Amino acid sequence: MSDRLFERNSAVTLGSRKSGEALKITGLRTVFQIEKNSESFPNTAKITLYNLSKNSRAMVSKEDAFVMLEAGYGDRLETLYVGDVARAYVSRQGADWVTTIECGDGRNAIRRVHVDRSYAAGTDMKAIMQDVAKSFVEQGKVALGSMIGIESKKTERGDVLSEMSKDAMDRLTKNQGLEWSIQNNTLQVLPKNQALPAEAVLLTPATGLVGVPVLRDVNEGTAGIEFTALILPGIAPGRLVKIQCDQNQSVNGLYKLEAVDFVGDTHGQSWYAEGVAVTL
């Protein structure tokens, strides 16, 4: 296994989108469970910090509080998760003060953002979908990522959108066979049979693949695999993964990642990603 996969490390930033305050925390024991997928509901996380200072604990109670978790090896850290704080609580475990934070990626935007627009007949559907996406950016402080595969098709009649932006985006993407989600506070739209335009994450025993991937049916009979790897932040819904496993060459190939769960403990044994990916 590559030397770059040793010396696991993490950093947590606590902040408020309302006030603009942010505090980066390093060196503390950090335990986390993260669930990510390509659906339009918020990706969830539970992040536990040991012996966080009183002032730092106060940050998660601020209005529109958020958490950013970076993970990696040595000083090579990348963003693993960004989410809005849904609930936070403190408990005493022996000599330790333990702060647990439950989060949802894009949670506030999905729950709050509303679109109110009217369109004349002949409006480009691509423009309508872009307007809905912009509502997340302008009202929900979500970044705009890749928007791929949207058909440029004229509407036959006028239309009025007055609804939650999530509902509008669900309907518009479904009509075009697309999927949308918020990943690390960034909105992305993709065809269901296409991955993000980024280099595939190579998974081999040398780069972090653990054990042998298993072939399985995913999403109503679509062929795919399940795999376990060490935590690599590049493993994210919508990304391409390239499997190379000499122990079972039938699983080798390119796949689009549909879902991944991360489990980590900077002071324990857990430091894994469990992914589900489909054949393209």
Rank of each mutant, 00 (worst) to 15 (best):
E7M: 13
V12E: 05
R17V: 04
K18C: 00
S19F: 01
E21F: 11
A22G: 10
K24W: 00
K24R: 14
I25H: 10
I25Q: 11
G27P: 06
L28M: 07
V31A: 02
F32G: 02
K36C: 01
S38F: 01
E39Q: 09
F41D: 15
A45K: 03
I47G: 06
Y50E: 13
K54W: 03
R57M: 09
A58G: 10
E63H: 05
E63W: 03
D64R: 05
V67Y: 02
M68Y: 01
M68I: 11
L69G: 00
L69I: 02
R76C: 01
L80Y: 04
T99N: 03
T99S: 07
T100I: 01
C103H: 04
C103T: 13
G104A: 10
N108E: 12
R112H: 13
R112K: 14
V113N: 10
V115F: 07
D116H: 10
S118M: 13
Y119I: 12
Y119N: 11
A121R: 12
M125Q: 13
K126D: 14
A133R: 09
A133C: 15
F136I: 06
G140M: 03
K141L: 06
K141V: 04
A143Q: 08
L144R: 11
M147V: 14
G149W: 02
S152D: 13
E156H: 05
E156S: 12
E156N: 09
E156T: 08
R157H: 10
G158S: 03
D159H: 04
S162G: 06
M164K: 15
D170C: 09
R171E: 12
T173Y: 11
K174Q: 15
N175C: 07
Q176T: 15
G177V: 06
G177P: 15
E179Q: 14
W180A: 03
Q183V: 14
N184W: 02
N184I: 04
T186H: 04
L187C: 03
L190N: 03
P191T: 12
K192A: 05
A195W: 06
P197V: 08
P197C: 08
P197R: 07
A198Q: 15
E199K: 15
E199V: 08
P205A: 01
A206D: 14
A206N: 08
G211T: 14
V212I: 15
P213K: 01
V214A: 04
V214H: 03
L215F: 02
L215S: 13
R216N: 05
N219F: 03
N219R: 13
E220N: 15
T222P: 00
G224H: 09
I231W: 00
L232K: 06
L232P: 00
G234H: 02
G234M: 00
I235Q: 12
A236S: 13
P237S: 09
G238Q: 08
L240G: 04
I243K: 11
I243Y: 09
Q244D: 15
Q244G: 05
N252P: 14
N252I: 12
L254W: 07
K256Y: 02
L257W: 07
E258D: 11
A259I: 10
D261Y: 02
V263H: 03
D265F: 01
H267P: 01
S270Q: 14
Y272C: 00
A273Q: 03
E274N: 13
T279Y: 10
